[in-house]
């Protein structure tokens, strides 16, 4: 049918290397999510603090993360910081870029989730003797994380997909980077990237299905 012979064997022979890359990809995504969630909780508290400066920091962060390309954010981490004499490794650049993006989107999600939790929950906590921080920590935060669980899963998928951008700042040990390097050696572009695509697809499916399982365990109410 095509004037082209597929060479799947060649691509599949490289599978072990690509799977190693997939592990790096997962590491970047998981780290960027873990740090991103922590930052988002902090930024959310900045927003709630009533302090103008803190809430301006949070708002600026969120708007830049949401209104510029992820690739731009990664360039900023790499080339932008570079002009301040801060030279990050490709790994650090991609991690910082994706983390910045995650934190921004998650903060916005958390804000929406908070709106869904009535003030009266905090009031009930305060009248039991909790301080503001205690009421947030024990009463609001767990409910907020539940509402945000699905958006967090989606963000995790985005984080996985965004790792492919690392190649633009010289990253070559993640799944996309490995595939690109192999391509330079063998020129089986279609086959190699098709295999990479399948791996990416499986990773995202495992994440969404796994998250569903975890959610059904974690949230019984």
């Amino acid at each position: 049918m095509f004037n082209y012979t597929f060479q799947w064997k060649q691509a599949l022979a490289r599978l072990p290397q690509m799977l190693d890359g997939a592990i790096v990809t997962m590491q970047i995504a998981i780290l960027s999510m873990a740090i991103g969630i922590l930052l988002a909780v902090v930024l959310t508290m900045f927003r709630l603090s009533g302090n103008r400066a803190l809430s301006a920091i949070a708002k600026t962060w969120v708007e830049i993360a949401r209104n510029t390309p992820a690739l731009f954010q990664i360039y900023m981490a790499h080339f932008g910081l570079g002009s301040f004499g801060i030279h990050l490794s490709p790994f650090a650049s991609i991690l910082l870029g994706i983390t910045f993006n995650n934190a921004g989107y998650l903060t916005e999600n958390f804000r929406g989730a908070l709106k869904a939790i009535p003030d009266t929950q905090t009031r009930a906590g305060r009248s039991l003797g909790f301080g503001a921080a205690g009421a947030f920590r024990y009463i609001v935060l767990p409910q907020m994380l539940r509402i945000s669980f699905l958006p967090m899963t989606n963000q995790m998928v985005w984080a996985i997909l965004m790792t492919s951008l690392g190649v633009t700042v010289g990253m070559n040990s993640d799944l996309y980077g490995v595939t690109q390097d192999l391509n330079a050696l063998t020129f089986r572009t279609f086959e190699l990237f098709a295999v990479a695509a399948v791996i990416f697809y499986l990773i995202t499916k495992v994440i969404t299905l796994g998250a569903r399982l975890v959610a059904s365990r974690l949230f019984r109410y």
Binding site: Y4, V157, L161, M162, T163, S164, L165, V167, Y176, T189, F190, F193, A194, A196, A197, F200, Y201, T204, K205
Partner: peptide
């Protein structure tokens, strides 16, 4: 579910090569 970058590379390779 797969990176846009890969979609572009695959489409390019498929159509061109």
């Amino acid at each position: 579910s797969i990176p846009l970058l890969i979609q572009l590379v695959l489409a390019n390779a498929f159509i061109g090569t």
